[in-house]
Simulated scan of single mutants.
Amino acid sequence: MSDDKTREIFVTGLRNAHAMENQALSIMKPQVKRIENYPEMAAMLQQHINETQGQIDRIEEILTSLAEDYSTLKDLALSLTGSLAALGHSVAGDEILKNSMANFAFENFEIAAYKSLITIAELGGYAGLVSPLQMSLDQEVAMAAWLEENLRPTTIKFANLKEAGQTAKV
């Protein structure tokens, strides 16, 4: 594979990752605003929102170092789909469970994206750009692990609230 093709793949992947992280924000921000009965979830989502902004900043720094820019069109398109997904879950009677499952799936998608970007960076001779990507990957792995560990307790709390006749709303 030529250096030009590898660079093209890398830049496209970075633009996609930038849009993906904006999509993540458009999913998490409405969720965290609606959470009432799950303070641990709200705190973790807020922490990850802050991390996600840092991930976006790192991607922008990498793109700038390559004399490239992110794709506003991709960002807008994925942000819109993220907002629609968040809205769709908000009408579900088990919104907190739907959000937990969707967030876990999305985190694993992000993990795969960063692993792929790191591989392309290494193949393309961009070893100096691996560290910020690895930092983002580590944050995604930590969030996915937290969501996985907390799916059972969140489900139990939801079921207990519902059984007690209390609002099980997020």
Rank of each mutant, 00 (worst) to 15 (best):
K5T: 10
H89I: 04
R34D: 05
D75P: 00
A85D: 11
V130H: 08
I9Y: 15
E8C: 08
K162I: 02
T52M: 01
A77H: 13
Q134L: 09
T167K: 12
V91C: 07
S136H: 03
M20N: 03
N37K: 13
P132T: 05
Q53W: 06
S100I: 00
A67R: 14
L117Q: 12
G128F: 11
I49A: 05
D75N: 13
A105D: 10
Q55C: 01
G13K: 06
D75Y: 03
L76C: 04
L78G: 00
N50C: 00
A86Y: 01
L97I: 15
L123I: 12
E36L: 14
T167P: 05
V130P: 07
S79F: 07
Q23T: 03
E163S: 03
E61R: 15
K115M: 13
Q46R: 13
T72H: 07
S136K: 02
H89Y: 10
S131R: 15
I9E: 11
G128Y: 06
G124L: 04
T12C: 08
E110S: 04
Q46W: 02
G88H: 01
T154R: 07
L87V: 12
Q23V: 06
L84C: 06
K74P: 01
P39E: 08
M135Q: 15
T167W: 04
G54H: 05
R34S: 14
I120A: 06
I56E: 03
G165H: 02
A92P: 02
N108Y: 05
H18Y: 12
N103L: 12
A85H: 08
L147M: 09
L80Q: 01
K169Q: 05
N150W: 07
I56S: 00
L25N: 08
S2I: 11
K29C: 05
D57R: 12
K74R: 13
A127C: 02
A77D: 09
M44W: 03
A43C: 06
S136G: 14
E122S: 12
N16F: 06
L63Q: 09
G128E: 04
T154D: 03
A92I: 02
S83Y: 14
E68A: 14
Q139H: 14
L14G: 06
D69C: 02
M143V: 02
L80P: 00
I59S: 07
